[in-house]
């Protein structure tokens, strides 16, 4: 420590007022605090060290004498494994047991170090379909499917292709017939009474329709075919 006078002189240079203040300790400590403090601190250190020992203790247990016999047990297992191979060969080919297993072949120096650096052979390029190619494939597939669907529909639903004769809508065809055609038909195919009735009511379309209703559909169809053929010829 520097002499108190030196420190006081330094303080007087800086602050006269401060140098005049008495250095009396204004604080207090509990009774016998410093007397007991060393024992308290040492007690805490021992307590902590005790807890450290406990925390570092291994909580697991091993069977008695485990480590003493461990090395022998491992060696015994190694020898057992070796003798199994040896025993097998004694039965299969005893002469093999008499031959040294040392490698006779040699490899170039540093061969195994280089093996890891041998470049793999280039493989065939596997290219994935581009987006455009994929769309094209889907479009072709959709087209084929569409053609098949249309073909199937036409095949199963179009009777014309099978019979070669288009179906006739009798009611519509009759509506399109002229009165003269109908009278001609009746004259050639109907009974006498039908003709009389028709003549009597030639002006009444309703009566004609009534007569037509009584006629068989097959007869009307026949008539219409003949009429249409005549029309085409003329």
């Amino acid at each position: 420590m520097e002499k108190r006078e030196q420190i006081l002189a330094e303080l007087q240079e800086v602050s006269q007022a401060l140098a005049q203040i008495n250095k009396t300790n204004v604080w207090s400590v509990p009774y016998a605090y410093f007397t007991n403090l060393p024992d308290i601190i040492l007690g805490k250190i021992k307590e902590r060290e005790g807890s450290f020992h406990l925390s570092s203790a291994n909580p697991f247990k091993v069977p008695g004498g485990y480590f003493e016999g461990l090395a022998d047990n491992i060696l015994k297992k190694i020898n057992t494994a070796k003798s199994e191979v040896y025993t097998d060969l004694e039965e299969l080919a005893p002469v093999l047991n008499t031959i040294s297993k040392n490698e006779l072949f040699a490899v170039p120096e540093g061969y195994f170090e280089q093996v890891a650096f041998i470049a793999p052979k280039p493989q065939a390029k596997i290219s994935s379909l581009s987006r455009t190619n994929k769309i094209l494939c889907y479009a072709v597939a959709a087209g084929i499917t569409g053609i098949m669907a249309v073909s199937s529909y036409l095949y199963f639903n179009n009777d014309t292709t099978q019979s070669g004769v288009a179906p006739i809508n009798v009611a519509a065809a009759v509506d399109n017939l002229s009165e003269e055609d109908i009278l001609t038909y009746l004259e050639t195919n109907s009974t006498a009474s039908d003709v009389i009735n028709v003549n009597n009511t030639s002006d009444s379309a309703l009566e004609v329709n009534g007569l037509l209703k009584e006629m068989p559909e097959e007869g009307i169809r026949e008539f219409l075919n003949e009429t249409s053929e005549n029309g085409k010829k003329s």
Binding site: L11, V14, S15, A17, L18, I21
Partner: peptide
């Protein structure tokens, strides 16, 4: 520090 303390006390 000494100067500041002196100022405070005064």
């Amino acid at each position: 520090a000494a100067k500041k303390i002196e100022d405070f006390i005064l």
